[in-house]
Write a protein that binds this DNA or RNA. Sequence first.
DNA 1: AACGCGGGGGC
DNA 2: GCCCCAGCGTT
Length: 309
Amino acid sequence: MMEGVPTVSRNAPMPATTEDASRVDAVRKWFHEAGRELPWRDGGTSPWGVLVSEIMLQQTPVVRVEPVWHAWMERWPTPAALAASTQADAIRAWGRLGYPRRAKRLWECAVALVERHDGEVPSTLEELRTLPGIGDYTAAAVVSFAFRGRATVLDTNVRRVIGRAWRGEALPAAHQTVAERALAASLVPQDDEGAADWAAASMELGALVCTARVARCDECPLASSCAWLAAGRPGLAEAPRRTQPWHGTDRQVRGRIMAVLRAASSPVNVTGHATLEDVEPGQLDRCLEGLVEDGLVTVVSADRGTYAL
DNA sequence: AACGCGGGGGC
DNA sequence: GCCCCAGCGTT
């Protein structure tokens, strides 16, 4: 062994310091005082209810999800109930939440739960991760929020909180780094309940206080120890924006086509539809083709140009 | 690693 | 009008 070379692998889990632990505790304490009461946080919510909420919350704010989640759970209280319905009905019930492929995958997920898991939501990261629409974040969130298990829940909120308070960075990079993940993992309390509590608390802090562009540092339980605040909150104005064009894009046209098809109970002649008159025929065809390719839309009659969900 | 994918509310 | 939001799957 060479002198001065660390004997611990760089990939070994880094233990949290006692200061880390006290900061984690501060965020948890704040959460119990200031956290929102959201329906899917109700202790009586089933793992299925938590899973549905997590899929809906992927890139969609809480206020928009809430009413749709209630209606969804009323109609399909179990995976078996949704699996017995059609993909088209799932997409209709999804309404205007956006990214309708999530509705498709949620329906496929329900089918997979019935076929592979006896209609139950599995409780391990590995099993969850194989289900349609469930990636690293959502699998960890279900373990944590539905089963109160220990997982590293690292969403955009938690990344921002850790990035600022621990690393002194204004906004997280586009992609997670190994170091970032290791730091996040090191902060997770050892006990299951503590871990689940920290996951919810750190996300809530990012959602309510440590927000992207207008951080409310005066309300933050980490204000006295935050690396970013101590440095004078640098880099916020220079941080790259993620704004995407909208008006006239394929994205918008796809959404408009889906809105027409959701509202219809029988096949629609999309290319001759009054609502879509202003769309260039070439773009309309391209978007239609893409939606069919994505499995969101079916061709009823190519001759007559009719389509349905 | 980069890209495509909705929609709406806050600022 | 800009900007962000409890990401995922594919290339």
